[in-house]
């Protein structure tokens, strides 16, 4: 089990949903669709090991149990739809200021000095992505990152993730939009009756 590179999820069971098998190679992408409240976020949180659950996951063939909780989550980052901001300035949350990424998302590097209180929901959501990718994870679990964004910013978010995929990032992406799954050239999964299965688009 699990000598392949990238993320493998094997029979993951949380309270409301299960994901029997998922394999995302480096640079690969999977999407997960399903009705709201069906447990999509719970499955992503379970992959990141943020909630108690059953089942195993592997990164490059190494089982999750071999990692400490936080070292696993350094490699496999869960990006919530609207994550919290705790320090005063945006820059205090960024592990690195990456001008290209920020520019793609529509920010100048002076965004580091912005107060987090002034951010709009859309800005928080885009900067949340910048914050997560600055940590250079191997796997990014995106929980509806474009739900609050217009078409142009959605496209910017996709471009940032695609650029990271070329550098080997594996992405798992919760989205309601079948067109987005096609654009991302992802393996599409649908959560139906509590089980995530690969679907035909």
């Amino acid at each position: 089990m699990g000598t392949e590179a990238g993320l493998i999820v094997d029979d993951l069971r949380c309270v409301v949903a299960t994901w029997p098998r998922l394999a995302v190679p480096p640079g690969g992408c999977a999407t997960l669709a399903g009705p709201s409240g069906s447990g999509k976020s719970r499955l992503l949180r379970a992959i990141a090991d943020l909630d108690p659950h059953e089942g195993e996951a592997y990164l490059d063939g190494t089982p999750r149990a071999a990692f400490a909780g936080h070292t696993w989550r350094q490699a496999v980052i869960y990006l919530p739809a609207d994550g919290a901001w705790w320090a005063e300035r945006v820059g205090d949350h960024l592990a690195a200021i990456e001008p290209d990424t920020l520019a793609t998302l529509g920010f100048d590097t002076d965004v580091a000095d912005w107060s987090v209180r002034r951010l709009s929901t859309g800005e928080r959501s885009r900067l949340g992505l910048a914050r997560a990718v600055a940590l250079r994870p191997r796997v990014l679990l995106l929980d509806e990152p474009t739900a609050n964004l217009d078409d142009a910013t959605t496209e910017a978010v996709e471009r940032v993730v695609q650029a990271r995929r070329e550098a080997g990032l594996a992405a798992v992406w919760v989205t309601h939009d079948p067109a987005q799954a096609r654009r991302l050239e992802a393996q599409p999964f649908t959560l139906h009756d509590g089980t995530a299965r690969e679907a035909q688009l």
Partner: peptide, 22 residues
Amino acid sequence: QQRDVIETRLALGEPWNVAVEQ
């Protein structure tokens, strides 16, 4: 009260004692 902050910090790979520091 600050569960969102702690959870976000955990999700970003911080150790528990750093996430709960404040």
